[in-house]
Design a binder for these strands. Structure first.
Lengths: 171, 171
DNA sequence: GCCGTTCACTTTGACGTCAAAGCAACTTGG
DNA sequence: CCAAGTTGCTTTGACGTCAAAGTGAACGGC
């Protein structure tokens, strides 16, 4: 969709919605609506950019996150269920991602010797090379180039972390 | 998935990732990574909550946004292309949403008398009743109850708006 | 007045996400 | 020690999103 918006809109559509909210007597919800909507929109923007960087490497953001997590782990492998907990995604999504990563030769499935129900996902050498390259590009092209100051990034992060904590994302 | 996370994680997984970033010498990208990841995660959380509120009304968030936009318009109708621009979503997504809203009797498609290529989506009375009920519930159950102060909501909104503007979301 | 281009929308296909159901392995109470 | 319940993962189905291709209407230059 990024490529579809020919002309940037004159006025911020979220400010417009906020005005409409206030005009309808919903002032007490206007700021929350604006914040939630902003988050929705930015997720869409960032996801598009991130996938643009990752596409040449043949991975999506969901799969990159799995690779990244495995690369940080001591052994380079982890039970599928634990991946889901750490990334906070549905088990079915992890199954899907690991399946495709395995098809691409970036990950190998192994039996868990400690638990016959569990499946380990293990990084292959190719997977490790891929994740390092992807990380370098994401850092260089996106994460280190956000168009607001570091101080503002940290402030925004802290505010959002407050929400995440309050909704029970972590203790 | 909300219902799938049994136990909140001990430590914030994003803080963990941030530590790993710094430990790997990617300090200049760590804050950006943390902010982007937070946005991704919160989108998931809020989308889940919003859809939970809307589900009993038989609409999804994507469809609700279309209804809400139409309800704010003078005539209660709008070309589908303009809907896509205002909501900043791909034309195919609008086609999809309008199709399902029409199937549910919440919207009617009409020819645009001014342009034979264009299709108008027009709110039906049932659509208008639905969107008002949905808005009331979203306001009461989500937007007016965010677990950070109004001041923090506004600060976070402004920081995120700065990003949205910088990436060309609006002029 | 025509032809080529642009524009508005739709269709198709790939992908990720969640919910719910299914299955096999592990655990627990009696 | 076995039946009942729980846990870890997979499968299936519905939905939204984007990219790319397709269709038909409108426009613009000659």
């Amino acid at each position: 969709m990024s490529g579809t918006v020919r002309t940037p809109l004159r006025r911020d559509p979220i400010e417009l919605a906020r005005s409409n909210w206030i005009g309808n007597g919903w002032s007490d919800a206007a700021d929350g609506m604006a914040l939630v909507t902003s988050i929705m929109r930015l997720q869409q923007v960032f996801l598009g950019r991130v996938e643009g960087v990752l596409r040449p490497h043949g991975v999506t953001f969901a799969r990159y996150e799995v690779l990244r997590l495995l690369a940080f782990s001591r052994s380079g492998s982890m039970p599928v269920g634990k991946i889901g907990q750490r990334l906070q995604v549905h088990p079915a999504s992890v199954t899907n991602a690991v399946q495709r990563l395995e098809d691409a030769g970036l990950v190998r499935r192994e039996a868990n010797p400690d638990d016959g129900r569990s499946v380990l996902a293990a990084l292959t050498p190719k997977g490790r090379r891929t994740v390092e390259r992807c990380t370098d590009e994401l850092n260089a092209q996106i994460f280190s180039l956000l168009p607001i100051s570091l101080a503002e990034q940290r402030r925004a992060f802290r505010a959002l972390r407050g929400i995440r904590q309050a909704v029970g994302d972590f203790a």
